[in-house]
Amino acid sequence: MHELPVTQSILDIVLKHAHMNQVKSVHAINLVIGEMSDLEDEWIQRYFDYLSRDTVAQGARLNIERVPVVLRCELCSHSFELDIRKMEDICCPACGEKKFSFVSGREYYIKNMEAE
């Protein structure tokens, strides 16, 4: 349900950059979203289609690039990808340590847009 304010925020940012660059129409918007975030592609697009009517972003396609969760072992610095929704115990595949820091997976930004 929070997709609506998120979509509004995306549209606001896109329109700001569209205005700054004096574009006539926005064709595509490329988002980068980490796997830690819930964001439904289909709903985002549907909300966007609704909110962007009668703006230069009307009809733009939203492309979401998902960034996997990557952890770095605190002991040996080995980095590895993680499926956060699996039940298994997690330990570093290189050394077996169980303490980690985040390398990626929390991204939540607009990378760029295609416009003319």
């Binding site: 304010p5 925020s9 896109v14 660059n21 930004y109 760029n112 847009m113």
Partner: peptide
């Protein structure tokens, strides 16, 4: 698709909040 340009944005969604 002449005239189409790629505009860098690199801005956090919900940055206003």
């Amino acid at each position: 698709m002449e005239g189409i340009q790629l505009i860098e944005i690199k801005e956090e969604i919900m940055s206003d909040n």
